[in-house]
């Protein structure tokens, strides 16, 4: 059985990561920004699994489970915040949420 070299997997993870980063930078809707961050986190998770497969260790997958758990916690806080923000501003445009110049 031939196995794929590790670089392919890392390349895929890298491309996913860049897609997430670019969409985070160009999207203006906060929900989409949150989704972009999720893509980046999952790209990192994929990279961990690829690396774990290379060394035939379970560590990579353990780390992936940690990442998924943490992403879920983050999204739950994030969505609560977005609800509150929508309640205040009546929009999800991130440019509107700019009371402090920054």
């Amino acid at each position: 059985m031939t196995t794929l070299p590790m670089e392919y997997g890392l390349l895929l993870a890298g491309i996913l990561f860049v897609i997430g980063l670019v969409s985070l930078l160009i999207r203006r809707n906060i929900i989409f920004m949150l989704i972009s961050v999720e893509i980046m986190l999952n790209a990192a998770g994929l990279a961990f699994i690829v690396a774990g497969a290379r060394w035939a260790q379970a560590d990579g997958q353990v780390m992936f489970i940690f990442i998924v758990t943490m992403a879920a916690a983050e999204v739950s806080v994030g969505l609560a915040l977005i609800l509150q923000l929508y309640h205040n501003l009546k929009t999800l445009d991130s440019d509107a949420a700019n009371l402090m110049y920054g």
Binding site: M6, L10, A13, F17, G20, L21, L24, I30, M33, L34, V37, M40, L41, A43, A44, G45, A47, F48, V50, A51, G52, R54, W55, D59, G60, M63, I67, M70, E74, V77, G78, L81, I82, L85, A97, N98, L99, M100, G102
Partner: peptide, 26 residues
């Protein structure tokens, strides 16, 4: 506003850090 800004940016920086760790591990 401060909370959501911190959340998006901190999550992004966590993703950067995790990807870096994954590369080091690889």
């Amino acid at each position: 506003e401060a909370g959501i800004k911190y959340l998006i940016l901190a999550a992004m920086s966590s993703a950067f850090m995790l990807f870096g760790m994954a590369l080091m591990y690889a």
